[in-house]
Design a protein around this nucleic acid. Sequence first.
DNA 1: CTGTTAGCGCGTTCAC
DNA 2: GTGAACGCGCTAACAG
Lengths: 353, 353
Amino acid sequence: MTTIYDVARQAGVSVATVSRVLNGEAHVAPETRQKVLHVVQQLGYRRNGLARGLATRATRLLAFLVPDISNPYFPEVARGVEDAANAAGYHVILCNTDDRARKEQEYLEALLDRRIDGAVIIPVAEGSRVPKLLKGTGLPAVLLDRDIDPELDTVMADNVAGARQAMRHLLGLGHRRIAAITGPTRSSTARERLEGYRQALAEHEIPFDPDLVVEGDFRRPSGYQGMLRLLDLPQPPTAVFAANDMMALGALHAAEERGVRVPEDLAVVGFDDIALAEATRPKLTTVAQPKYEMGRLGVELLLQRIPEGGRRGQGRRPQRLVLESRLVVRQSSLIVRSQLAPEPVPAANGKGV
Amino acid sequence: MTTIYDVARQAGVSVATVSRVLNGEAHVAPETRQKVLHVVQQLGYRRNGLARGLATRATRLLAFLVPDISNPYFPEVARGVEDAANAAGYHVILCNTDDRARKEQEYLEALLDRRIDGAVIIPVAEGSRVPKLLKGTGLPAVLLDRDIDPELDTVMADNVAGARQAMRHLLGLGHRRIAAITGPTRSSTARERLEGYRQALAEHEIPFDPDLVVEGDFRRPSGYQGMLRLLDLPQPPTAVFAANDMMALGALHAAEERGVRVPEDLAVVGFDDIALAEATRPKLTTVAQPKYEMGRLGVELLLQRIPEGGRRGQGRRPQRLVLESRLVVRQSSLIVRSQLAPEPVPAANGKGV
DNA sequence: CTGTTAGCGCGTTCAC
DNA sequence: GTGAACGCGCTAACAG
């Protein structure tokens, strides 16, 4: 492999000059510049990023830690991350943690060795050691989607408001017995969505009924099982709010199996708006999250913490971005003729409590 | 940041010894090892991957170039790539090319600067410069999914056999007027799937009818438009084979809109078996591709080309892996009672021509 | 079994 | 405007 020395010799200048030309610095005679560029071209020279990084103490490498890229919710976030990074001249390393704290930690340590410039992390749902591991290290990092540490920059969706919107929609349709299939209680996301559910009920002065709430694990089978349980109730719900789309799909499946018509006998609303939500029949009403934006903003925030030229915003206080989610009404909660429909399109915007 | 020198001094040994301990080499006195490890621990020392890479000429970094990670077909491939890489102690950089040769080239050049150890590439559909760019560079690379250069290692699905299976299934159901919605003709994938379509027709001595073939672009709207055209034919087809699931979804949509019942009036078969295929109603019959395996095997092949210890398989001839795809029969092509059904489950295995 | 030392390839003062 | 020389942190002979 040809080095900067080869170029310097061939061009009859010093390595310092070649370096200057390559980095587009001023104060280089135009002819010298041309000559160097010519030699670079003809030798097919490519500078060594490792050596560069070693000298500059910057790798222009970011990492994206995600539970599982093949989970339909994450690819769009990843795309947002990669686009923003690419636009700023960074590459991103993809890491699947499988929601296991152990794997998350191993990745983080290996990435530290690699001297990445920063990390965008969707922490594992339970027992993430990210905050502790980051402490001491100067590694800039931004958390996405899950609220686990007030000390760290975090970008998330407004889960409470989103759930409230979904519920207001169902309540507006005349439903009164509305069930919830929640995520695991240790998950901040799950808790927030359940909180939105409760708030909306409270607004309408409907008592919270524990029998109408079943806990799932964000995966499809748990939605299916949960829905079966709800349908077995002496007085089954007329609507169900699932804490994510996968569970809503499971609920749809359970209803289909039991001959319960959706939306006529049962309205179903999900959360996330993954691509699947539009492919089901009936199409799924759901709360759309700004997934791409979440990834993009995560990187924006991260870049602000990376020194580069003039360490601005270094010791800045931790930022917390809460992105608005919006309800997408589809067939699974369509207004049924036999019901009064005072609020076809949800007017409330869900701003403020 | 503490360096290997700090550790050496603190432990009262030389840097060489520390290096040996860190790299798990033999020939180090147990006590010395313990002492070094202890100091490493107490100083919180992490070795610098950049310096390491510079000295060893290896980064343990791979790249995965993919058209668009948010396209439902690719995340599973990515997962296969990342898992295999991780298991071997490599990290992988994610690059979205958007199917643009320009972006693909820019990434590849930047990655070359970074001295990655290898690349797994799904080349852009049209005019990829990957083969030319790789030439001269010693960069080990494996192509996935698209057959664009016989000189390079390639892993792909058996598109011809897959399409043939799908067609045999439809033919076995008694269909004779079977349409095809193909991908762009410049795409090797599209051409191969069309070839399978023709072969199956030939097997049954059914003449190829150009009117029954419309060209799409692998995206949903083109499947929708294509299906509308086919339904407008004086004598519409009774079945349609779409070259991928997204277009099959479009076809389903068109049928629904026209009041054509699936599968009663029209059988629909797709290709890929993305997650969406199971969420539609009716569920989509499709040819499943071993996506995860494709990614995993791509890395396996790649690692064989990376020197490491003892440059085995260096000058080896280019490998070509063709993975079997299998038909997944779902509702969109269910056997209709009113038809004779001589072959409920496709017995033919599609092996050999 | 352990230490010395010369690279690895580039950025960056500091003189000229 | 340009060059000489040192430092970045680590590995890999080569001695001992």
